[in-house]
Write a protein that binds this DNA or RNA. Structure first.
Lengths: 201, 201
DNA sequence: GTCTATAACTCGATAGAC
DNA sequence: GTCTATCGAGTTATAGAC
């Protein structure tokens, strides 16, 4: 708990931490209050309900999870460079917030669809720009004929899945967090190599 | 609800369904009872508590999620064939139970470590056999020098991540379940091609 | 074994003092 | 704005009849 921050900021920080760890259903308002160094009543004073507080956090987290790399996806850059930049940047970002991917995936799975559409569909992810670029380079004969969705899905899978599987991976292999981070550091360059190698002529 | 099954079997089926959908924290004993066509008290008669019931289900689901493909991993088969068999078989399996990966990943993230070790560490996953085979083929100069863990992680990522990201994928792209399944059907052969291509000399 | 009724408890939310 | 105290809804778990 940081006395310098405003109460609202402390609540948001605490809520983010607890929701990320426990999910909406597992989180307790009492835990958030404790984490923020205040009492439950104040949570309701600043945010009307648990649901509103969660919505605020989820919006913030989901916004950071998806479109921060959006600028890269729509940048005017050759495809291979773009893939390299994307992996480097995305893995860097997730290394800072390793619990985010599994949290987002899980909540998307559990929350009612209407709630999610409200949050996600209003942001226009520039995925389409990336898919089009792949398609164009296929047509121009620059790269092999591939399904653009597969390329995007492959890139995302290789960057994100290790973070999602990390608890299991560490449990099964006994790997510690430092080793895991080192592994991901290497993968920043190896993932693009793998992807590019699969599509270059 | 199937009247032919024993009460215990009906409870297990119902619990599996509800826990998979809602997770431990989101699941309600009432929902499980309704799904099984009995009342709450009977759940406690057969399984002492919600926690015990969850433990039973989680053990069963996790056991099916990880080591069913174990036989393939330790089989006496050339590496490339093994990778092909693994992807084909694993994707087939998950297509039957598409909610399992995200459920397992999520609960591993939330449950206390002691509980998980009790469940997971007692089964010896034959991952080591696969890693050793990759290592041997590297030493023998049959394939490129690679980190075996990377190969395993890549294969797992490409097979599993799409299922974990499916709700988001469908939300963002508007893809329906049939299209998604068709995509995964194609990936059964494309994933091994990608992996093998990255390590063959 | 299965049910109804209810106890025991957890937790989000509110009232009201300061 | 912040606190203490408490309500009331919802949930797990148990008692006891059949």
């Amino acid at each position: 708990m940081n006395k310098d921050e405003s109460t609202e900021a402390r609540i948001l920080g605490a809520a983010r931490k607890v929701f990320l760890k426990r999910g909406m259903d597992g989180a307790r308002m009492q835990d958030i209050a404790d984490e923020a160094g205040i009492n439950k009543a104040l949570l309701h004073y600043y945010f009307r309900s648990k649901e509103k507080l969660f919505e605020t956090i989820f919006l913030e987290v989901a916004a950071g999870f998806l479109p921060k790399v959006g600028k890269i996806l729509e940048a005017q850059v050759p495809l291979f460079e773009k893939i390299e930049m994307f992996c480097e940047e995305y893995i860097n970002q997730i290394l800072q917030t390793p619990y985010v991917p599994i949290f987002v995936m899980n909540e998307i799975n559990r929350q009612p669809k209407a709630f999610l559409q409200k949050i996600l569909l209003q942001r226009n992810l520039p995925i389409a720009a990336f898919l089009k670029q792949v398609e164009d380079e296929v047509k121009a004969g620059i790269i092999k004929p591939v399904n653009p969705v597969d390329i995007f899905l492959n890139t995302l899978s290789l960057c994100l899945f290790p973070f999602i599987a990390r608890p299991m991976l560490q449990l099964v292999t006994g790997m510690d967090t430092a080793s895991f981070n080192a592994l991901m550091e290497k993968r920043k360059t190896e993932i693009p190599r793998l992807i590019i190698n699969s599509i270059k002529k």
